[in-house]
């Protein structure tokens, strides 16, 4: 973005009459500027991370400063899905349905250790990272993350959106489930769900 430089001589009077009122920019930058500053979050709070999310939205940290004044409790009017908390397999089809209901453009933030990787819940009931269900743009580490962490993730997301190009149609392609009913290839899911930390000492019969 930049203001028009005053033109040289000749038609100087004509241009100077309008120059202070004209702004030239690339269309994608204008669109991205609008999008970064009007992200409407769809909170998907399932656990203690949702408490931190509520603190982020409340007056002390004030999510509204980032254009998230309006929290969309309907996926159809939302831009950012924030999964705050652990996701059991029972909720996997629910978050997938919500993601499918959100219109483009849309982004996802995975808030906290459990949403990002399953966290301490390396069990039969828990999805090992929501990126095996939906595409994720920003991961927030922490258990739970402090509001500053979530705000930083939002700023990172804004930075990411600022770099998007309208000509890149791949960005806005709807990523649906494959014919096998999975979002990722099975081998990729198994790889992502590999145990780590203390979990490697547990037994599994698979």
């Amino acid at each position: 973005m930049g203001l028009i430089q005053p033109a040289a001589a000749g038609d100087a009077t004509e241009i100077s009459a309008v120059s202070s009122n004209v702004l030239l920019t690339r269309l994608s930058e204008l669109v991205n500027w609008g999008r970064t500053r009007s992200l409407w979050p769809m909170p998907f709070g399932t656990a203690c991370c949702a408490i931190e999310f509520m603190a982020t939205a409340a007056s002390r940290f004030d999510l509204a400063r980032f254009g998230m004044e309006r929290q969309a409790f309907s996926p159809r009017q939302a831009d950012v899905l924030i999964c705050a908390g652990r996701l059991p397999y029972k909720l996997a089809p629910v978050i997938r349905r919500i993601w499918d209901q959100m219109p483009q453009p849309k982004w996802a933030i995975s808030m906290g250790a459990c949403a990002s990787s399953g966290g301490i819940f390396d069990t039969y009931a828990m999805v090992q990272g929501i990126d095996t269900i939906i595409p994720v743009d920003v991961y927030v580490p922490g258990c739970p993350p402090r509001p500053e962490g979530l705000l930083y993730a939002i700023m990172l997301l804004q930075k990411k959106i600022s770099g998007e190009r309208l000509s890149d149609t791949e960005l806005r392609r709807e990523q649906t489930l494959g014919p096998d009913g999975l979002f990722l290839p099975p081998a990729r899911i198994d790889e992502l769900a590999e145990p780590f930390g203390n979990s490697v000492h547990q037994t599994r019969s698979a």
Binding site: Y89, K90, A92, T123, T132, A193, R204
Partner: peptide
Amino acid sequence: FPLRGRFTRAEQTRQALGA
């Protein structure tokens, strides 16, 4: 019952998403 369940994670995810 094994803590992580009897099926692979991919199979668990497939069954969950199919519900």
